[in-house]
Design a protein around this nucleic acid. Structure first.
Lengths: 318, 318
DNA sequence: CGCCTTCGGTGACGCGTGTCAACCTGTACT
DNA sequence: AGTACAGGTTGACACGCGTCACCGAAGGCG
């Protein structure tokens, strides 16, 4: 049923350890003829090494676990993960996903039991989990350290910059009231604030709301006419847009809105919401390279790579 | 660094095999005193069995792989996966996720190498992957067989039924032109058609569009006034709603719209879109029970469980 | 010839676990 | 006393793999 390295060895007429060495990068010790025989036998039999056997003898598995934040996994993130999966697969690594919102104990048990080659988190991990991971000697790939580019800061900055360039002098920042859903809000707000500061504008007012039109109305009442709002995401922008309609506020003249994430809701609103999409495409190769480097050399802990592109999708709300 | 069963054995003053037996459900052979000593030693040392060692000797790992369809993973699915994760963890199983859109070869390699206890797919798997999985003797949990409840058929049915009850006599079904994004369309359309048939209405017209307002306008021009449209999801409904606005069609008088999935876009539209949410909550325990049953007994291949709740969220579009 | 080196290849070990036949020690029964 | 039996415990094995010391043969050199 299962093809083991012993089967390959028999089929190639060599010993199992020869097979193991050739298939693990030590082939240079053997003449080409032997190498070819073994390779041929392996592919003919469809040999696939047992992850368990490998992991047992090497002390760590070939699995890389990605901790997925508690947020909507849309096309952007999906494409990133897809690319990363294939990239790592090319290096013999297996990417598997885990929701970060699963119970901490079960995640901890999973890590200690599985001994992944690396754990990649898209958000800073809890101190306890970090301790668990590092105590086990498992590599941890985390979001960039201070000083690195931060995609969320830059998105906030791009939003605010765009609004300022369009001539708005009053900039506000709108995010979700429920902070659990709002995992990037801090960084984005920081980006908005930084852009305002650099252009001599006062610190942006921060508006918090839940995702419904009624709350949007309440918040809009408190805003001065002429304010441009950088929104945490397109949903927030849509809520405010709906509120503007109910209040008969003209968009973008009375209130301007900039969203984030380039989701369908932005395109489908009337008017379409000006939004900032980002592609993590460039990050794929960087991320896999960082992981692979960290696993081969005993280098420092790599940071979640800063490769990304932000692009403006101009709509009618700014 | 790592605590092994040998450490536990030493600490408890028994042999390693005693530890193994007690920790694997064969404790009834031992007196309570021994059991307690071993349990105490295990928890005191924080013993966590090596997944690799287990997998090696048992021929299959404790990992359950869930194949995630190529779609947005929103709160509904996330909650389901979270619950399943914890539920399975309680039975010693580890749920890990994998994007179904990753390259087939890498997924195949992952399965053969990892030998998961089970693979759960939310969509029918490709014949080739099925062959790979079943050839390995790995359990496959798939969407329900014909005859089972199908959440997507029922959603379509509920949409159409609602529209019919509201008095509409012309029912259409709108879905995405790009079929790759439209993985459930067939079933939902089937549900809509069934409801129409049962109520003596003609077979529903099917409208295909890409997610933009322009396409919606084009499709709306071809629809008769007074048509009620069951939409594949809230995005489609939003696009049509935007189109109606541009064409000055009154909603719901000229065109009625029913969405699906209960996403923010439905709540945030003006008027709010009538939509059908579904909760997979009840499916969690069913799913884990099915998986566990299938793994303990050598029963038949279980089907993806039909436990779910559909609820109407009344908006202003019907 | 005797010694050393290189090439090609192998046997044996250990990773951590679950299982199971076998063993030991009482105790009950014949 | 001898036998049967049950309860409690253990040693040994196998799972599939990577590694590494080691070995035989061939060749070079003094």
């Amino acid at each position: 049923m299962t093809v083991t390295s012993a089967d390959v060895a028999r089929h190639a007429g060599v010993s199992r350890s020869t097979v193991s060495q050739i298939l693990n990068g030590h082939g240079h010790r053997f003449p080409a003829s032997t190498r070819d025989r073994v390779q041929a036998a392996a592919s003919e039999l469809g040999y696939q090494p047992s992850a368990a056997g490998r992991a047992l003898v090497r002390g760590a598995s070939d699995i890389v676990v990605a901790l997925i934040p508690d947020m909507t996994v849309g096309p952007t993130l999906q494409e990133f993960l897809n690319g990363l999966t294939d990239d790592l697969a090319r290096h013999g690594l297996t990417l598997l996903l885990r929701l970060a919102s699963a119970s901490p104990e079960s995640t901890e048990r999973m890590i200690t039991g599985l001994r992944p080659a690396a754990v990649m988190s898209m958000l800073p991990v809890s101190p306890r989990l970090r301790e668990c991971i590092e105590g086990l000697g498992v590599r941890l790939v985390e979001p960039g350290r201070p000083g690195d580019r931060d995609v969320n800061v830059e998105i906030g900055y791009a939003q605010a910059l765009h609004l300022i360039e369009r001539g708005y002098r009053r900039v506000a920042y709108a995010c979700l009231r429920d902070k659990r859903q709002d995992i990037f809000a801090g960084q984005r707000e920081q980006g908005v604030a930084r852009a305002c500061e650099r252009h001599g504008l006062p610190r942006p007012e921060v508006v918090r709301l839940a995702l419904c039109v009624d709350e949007a109305i309440a918040q809009l009442r408190a805003l001065e006419t002429g304010t441009a709002v950088a929104c945490y995401n397109d949903d927030v922008a849509a809520a405010l847009l709906g509120g503007c309609r109910e209040l008969d506020l003209r968009v973008p003249r009375d209130i301007a809105l900039a969203g984030t994430a380039d989701t369908p809701i932005a395109r489908l609103s009337v008017p379409a919401i000006t939004t900032f999409g980002y592609a993590l495409g460039p990050a794929v190769s960087e991320a896999s390279r960082e992981i692979i480097d960290a696993l081969s050399g005993d280098g420092h802990l790599p940071a979640f790579p800063p490769g990304f592109e932000i692009r403006l999708v101009q709509g009618g709300t700014t």
